[in-house]
Write a protein that binds this DNA or RNA. Structure first.
Length: 105
DNA sequence: TCCTTGACGGAGA
DNA sequence: ATCTCCGCCAAGG
């Protein structure tokens, strides 16, 4: 994937406000890459561990974190979302409440 | 090359 | 609500 594609994705992710979440598909759409949700996941997976990008605000379309429940990655993402003020009902986040509209605040 | 594997998603059953 | 089955597309074997 080219540099431009990555930059578009990073730009969209960076714009997700605290306390809100966006799905991989939504990020792809907003980045001008419709139907390329998997590409977004791949790009995020390649971020350096110390990245300042709010990658944890990106979850799947079912309102769930896309990592195994028992993984460190899952716990890390969940902690950061909760610190953001995002509530979980079991393993799920209510998208009708926390889904980012896609617009700037 | 071909095949499998993903931080995915939508349509059916 | 849950579970398959496909489509999607770049990487790695």
């Amino acid at each position: 994937m080219d540099e431009l594609m990555c930059q578009k994705v990073w730009q969209v992710v960076a714009a997700i406000p605290p306390g809100k979440v966006a799905s991989y598909g939504q990020v792809a759409e907003l980045a001008g890459l419709p139907r390329m949700a998997r590409m977004v996941g791949r790009i995020l997976s390649q971020l350096p561990k110390d990245s300042q990008l709010p990658w944890f605000r990106v979850i799947n379309a079912q309102g769930r974190i896309s990592f195994p429940l028992d993984s460190d990655a899952y716990r890390c993402q969940r902690e950061r979302l909760e610190a953001d003020g995002v509530e979980f009902n079991g393993e799920r986040i209510n998208l009708r409440v926390y889904r980012w509209s896609g617009e700037a605040d």
